[in-house]
Design a protein around this nucleic acid. Structure first.
Length: 418
RNA sequence: GUGGAAUUAGCUCAGUUGGUUAGAGCGCCAGAUUGUGAUUCUGGAGGUCGCGGGUUCGAGUCCCGUAUUCCACCCCA
């Protein structure tokens, strides 16, 4: 047992997993970039109040925040970001970029929760946000970008759940109706849901407890409360998705955890149903958030995807393996190691991935290391080669060898690799 | 935050009703005539059995506490 280990819910990511993470982010940057989205890098830390605007009734803000006071005078109340949407909106108000402002991000967030597989206290997300456009076809575009990203990874079993929470007034009327309904059936609810009912009635719809399922199933649905505008917007979003051949399932009980959502909400679910963590990502419209952060009235829509969970889904479907990181050349040197040092440096300068063995091991041992490195070619320098000013080039796959002059080594290797 | 399970070599795991120097597979290191790798054979290194108490003549095996991981709830990515 090591004397020190990572704090709960935190972990080290080593190669080849780290290589896979980078590749994951690169694919996302490529897909988002193709749509004209530029990357934003927001701070890991913000004033606590930025995140509080996300909603006083969300656990992410009230229970799960990593917060502390800094050394300012007076001290500022700071928090590690639990998500990035609020930071992006704050950045919009502060920098006032031209609208519509389309941006994407990738990086870690922090939530103090009980860790589980696919749920860590430091977890990476990628996401996009668009500020300053109300167009329902933009909602369809945003959803499509997420969808195409999953496709680019090779995922085929992702399900898209779609809902609209209506305008704030619609939502308020619906909440009132829900309260009335649940109050009439309160005896059939679990104790936990009774508590949830007093804080945020919408969330009762999310309960996974079996005793709640009957009552939840009979609850009124949001669809009956849409204003004409909200209904038209939602219809247009669906039309956009159909036009793009993106399949979706209407889920009137999809409310999602962040309180800032208005109108469109959606969630991507992985194909493996046997996990409580099958939500790969989600998003929606948050037209009031910029205003809540002191900016002008601004429409907003976006999504965030969990890197871990999406990678877990990739594992389940057997797609998007870690990229191969094999060496091109492995230099075996039985004359002490100096030659291997020189040759690997030279080859690396020329852009090849060149490795070598250390500690002057036997040729057999060095050949084993060459094999492990995955190198296509082994360059062997022994006393004979050193004296003659040559190098032996071995093609690992078929074992064929050739002796070349040291001056021609680089060219010979390139020829073999091509 | 609530409830449950797990924790033994680098990795994946065995360890019978508590009983002497804790095992396997893989991996690692070294050999199997002359300078050559994925097979085969031989040998070797590596563990205060998560940590701390307790019961006992004796605990990896039982009890308590604690830490971490995993599962469910909660929450969400």
């Amino acid at each position: 047992m090591p004397a020190f280990q990572t704090s709960p819910g935190m972990r080290d990511v080593l190669a080849p997993d780290s290589t896979r993470w980078r590749a994951f982010q690169a694919v996302f940057a490529q897909v988002a970039g193709a749509g004209g989205y530029g990357e934003i890098m927001v701070p890991l830390l913000e004033d606590l109040d930025v995140f509080k605007r996300v909603g006083e009734a969300t656990d992410v803000v009230t229970k799960e925040m990593y917060d502390f006071y800094d050394k300012g005078d007076p001290p500022r109340h700071i928090a590690l970001r639990p998500e990035q949407t609020a930071s992006v909106c704050r950045a919009f108000v502060q920098n006032r970029p031209q609208t519509p402002w389309k941006t994407f991000y990738a990086g870690p967030n922090f939530r103090y929760e009980r860790p589980q597989r696919g749920r860590y206290r430091q977890f990476d997300q990628v996401g996009i946000e668009v500020l300053g456009a109300d167009d329902p076809y933009l909602d369809a575009e945003v959803i499509a970008i997420g969808w195409r990203f999953f496709e680019a990874l090779g995922l085929r079993q992702v399900t898209l759940l779609l809902n609209s929470l209506g305008e704030p007034a619609d939502r308020a009327a619906y909440v009132t109706a829900l309260q009335t309904y649940f109050a009439a059936n309160v005896d059939e609810l679990s104790d936990e849901s009774k508590l949830t009912l007093t804080k945020n009635p919408l969330r009762v719809l999310d309960s996974k407890r079996r005793e709640d399922s009957a009552v939840v199933a009979g609850a009124p649905t949001i669809g009956d409360f849409y204003s004409a505008d909200a209904a038209a917007h939602f219809t247009a979003v669906q039309e956009g998705l159909r036009a793009l051949d993106i399949p979706f399932t209407l889920e009137p009980k999809l409310v999602r955890g962040l309180d800032y959502y208005r109108r469109t909400t959606f969630e991507y679910q992985g194909g493996t149903l046997n996990s409580a963590q099958n939500a790969l990502g989600g998003g929606g419209r948050y037209d009031g958030l910029v205003e809540a952060l002191g900016g002008p009235e601004t429409a907003g829509v976006g999504f965030a995807l969990g890197l871990d969970r999406t990678l877990l889904a990739c594992d389940d479907e057997g797609v998007f393996d870690a990229p191969a990181d094999a060496a091109d050349v492995f230099v075996v040197d039985t004359t002490g190691g100096m030659q291997a040092l020189i040759i690997t440096q030279q080859l690396q300068r020329e852009g090849l991935r060149a490795e070598r063995a250390y500690e002057n091991r036997s040729i057999k041992s060095q050949m084993k290391a060459a094999d492990r490195s995955g190198a296509a070619i082994a360059v062997i320098i022994g006393s004979d080669e050193l004296e003659a000013g040559t190098a032996t080039c071995k093609v690992m796959a078929d074992g064929t060898q050739s002796v070349v002059a040291r001056d021609d080594l680089s060219a010979a290797i390139r020829k073999q690799l091509s």
